[in-house]
Amino acid sequence: MEYNISIVVLIITFSFLLAALVLAFVRLLRGPSVNDRIAAMDVIAVIVMAFILTYSIMVNKAIYLDLPVIISLISFIGTVAVSTYLKHRYG
């Protein structure tokens, strides 16, 4: 079965994600503490995953779905590593 998603829907989805990326980036630059920046990085990883999902629908190739698996693994390890480092430095 072949589905055809209208291009308008894809453009609206991309623009939502782009706005989200810009806002998260503002928090990443402005954040008062390092922990705010880590939270913003976490959100940015999810936004990148959503971009890849939408793109895979746009070009109609299922092979792109490997990327979110890897990103979800790596972003978690990065978050925990930086938090543990900070905890040891402060404590």
């Binding site: 939502f16 994600l17 989200a20 928090r27 999810v46």
Partner: peptide, 11 residues
């Protein structure tokens, strides 16, 4: 995508 946008606005 709307819920992801909400997360960023909340941030």
């Amino acid at each position: 995508s709307f819920f992801i946008l909400i997360a960023s606005i909340g941030l």
